[in-house]
Simulated assay, not measured.
Amino acid sequence: MADPLVELTTRGMSIWLDDLSRERLVSGSLADLVARYHVTGVTTNPTIFAKAMTSGDAYHTQMSALAARGVEAAEALRALTTFDVRAACDVLRRVYDVTDGVDGRVSIEVDPRLAHDTDATIAEAQALWWLVDRPNLFIKIPAARQGLPAITACLADGISVNVTLIFSLSRYDAVMNAFLDGMERARLTGRDLSTLASVASFFVSRLDTEVDARLDKIGTDEATELRGQAALANARLAYQRYEQLIASPRWRALEAAGARPQRPLWASTSTKDPAYPDTRYVVDLVAPGVVNTMPEATLRAVAGHGQVPPDSIADHYEQAQQVFDRLRRLGIDYDDVVQRLEDDGVAAFEASWDRLREQLATTLRATDRGAGHGR
């Protein structure tokens, strides 16, 4: 029986894991997924770290040491997350070397509360780049409008960037332009462009969740027929824009100087509606030069029963545009949908970060008191 994961990689998709924890590192789970499931990268976010640090006792030893030093919660959080990401970079280093830096990447996100502060985002990105100190690191920067200049500045400064929380096609256009600006500035200062990398993370399934809810309120036969079509259509039209970018004279000039394209990355690829196939946001978005970052459950579902069609993107551009034309005629406001998703996405990551920092502060105080009683 053919291995669907091999088929995906043969067709040009890089398979990344959307998860990281100390337990996954210590147990060898990450190394096993790299060896047996063709995982060539890792993405993280505040929600992932919040889940990891509040489950089990894998972080207890490091938390005890931080508590003994009197480290504040915000700095402790940075120490814990960069430790995990540095270790994951080491696990993926061979992949990075074998693929000449294309894959083997691990992403860590700037504090999401800084998403609307350009200068603070740049400073945080520089600090994380220095702390992790691995060439296969990606700094995740949200694609909020204030994040766009930060993307350009970081790339110009030699920092590889994963642009996250992209929902709209117009915002993706702005992200690609920020990438080009950054690479052009890096070239002007004499940087080796071949060492710089970037991905643009398009969040997929959440668009269906929001659009389907609006279609359900409309309730007509056509509305029901359009359920579950918006997310794939959005991603396919994004890939069409990527193809236009890499055919542009502006990109060709950078490519001639050694630059590599900013690859589209499909994020939020677990299926939220149980009525949909659990592999749909993977097997229906396969094309050369894309990345798909999956939770482990989705990864194993694809490995177990994924069926990869001959062409799931380029043959569907016209159909994808028709989906949005029909949605517009039904009164679905695309701009309102994607702005709502961006705002909710940033707010959710902020809430996870704040919750984790508060929990960590409580844990550090309790750990410090426990250590004091033992002295």
Results as ranks from 00 to 15, higher is better:
257 A>M: 01
252 R>K: 10
277 P>R: 05
10 T>E: 14
289 G>I: 07
126 Q>H: 06
7 E>Q: 10
330 L>R: 05
223 A>V: 02
139 I>F: 01
312 S>Y: 15
347 A>Q: 06
316 H>S: 14
58 A>N: 13
167 F>M: 00
174 A>S: 03
25 L>Y: 05
148 L>G: 03
112 P>C: 09
6 V>I: 07
269 T>G: 00
316 H>L: 11
89 C>E: 09
212 D>A: 04
370 G>M: 07
166 I>P: 00
239 Y>N: 10
135 P>T: 03
170 S>D: 08
202 F>V: 05
80 L>V: 07
213 A>R: 10
77 L>K: 14
290 V>G: 09
13 M>N: 11
285 L>G: 07
334 Y>V: 01
144 A>N: 07
13 M>R: 10
40 T>N: 13
129 W>D: 07
285 L>S: 13
83 F>M: 13
361 A>K: 06
227 R>F: 00
67 A>M: 14
157 D>Y: 11
127 A>F: 11
139 I>A: 02
41 G>W: 14
362 T>K: 10
285 L>A: 10
72 E>R: 06
84 D>I: 01
129 W>F: 08
183 M>G: 09
358 E>K: 09
331 G>P: 03
55 S>N: 14
207 L>R: 00
140 K>I: 03
258 G>N: 04
96 Y>E: 14
236 R>C: 04
317 Y>G: 15
164 T>E: 02
241 R>P: 07
86 R>M: 09
59 Y>D: 11
210 E>D: 02
138 F>D: 14
324 F>D: 02
177 N>Q: 05
266 W>I: 09
289 G>F: 10
49 F>A: 11
173 D>V: 01
234 N>I: 01
1 M>I: 15
9 T>D: 08
271 T>E: 02
369 R>C: 12
53 M>G: 12
209 T>E: 12
303 A>V: 06
65 A>P: 04
340 R>W: 00
61 T>N: 08
215 L>T: 02
295 P>Q: 01
309 P>Y: 07
372 G>Y: 09
2 A>I: 12
74 A>W: 10
206 R>P: 00
115 A>G: 05
136 N>E: 11
274 P>M: 03
207 L>V: 00
226 L>P: 03
309 P>R: 04
361 A>T: 05
3 D>A: 08
278 D>N: 14
329 R>N: 12
375 R>N: 08
1 M>A: 09
367 T>K: 12
99 T>K: 08
208 D>Y: 09
60 H>Y: 12
47 T>Y: 01
112 P>K: 02
329 R>A: 15
232 L>R: 06
234 N>E: 07
145 R>I: 04
366 A>M: 08
66 L>V: 06
149 P>R: 02
216 D>M: 10
375 R>P: 15
33 L>G: 08
143 A>W: 00
143 A>R: 00
145 R>K: 05
266 W>K: 01
97 D>I: 10
183 M>V: 11
159 I>L: 03
78 R>K: 12
182 G>F: 02
15 I>F: 05
351 A>T: 05
213 A>W: 07
48 I>V: 05
236 R>T: 05
285 L>R: 03
39 V>P: 07
120 A>V: 08
284 D>T: 11
184 E>S: 08
3 D>H: 04
365 R>H: 06
308 V>G: 11
24 R>T: 07
323 V>I: 11
141 I>E: 01
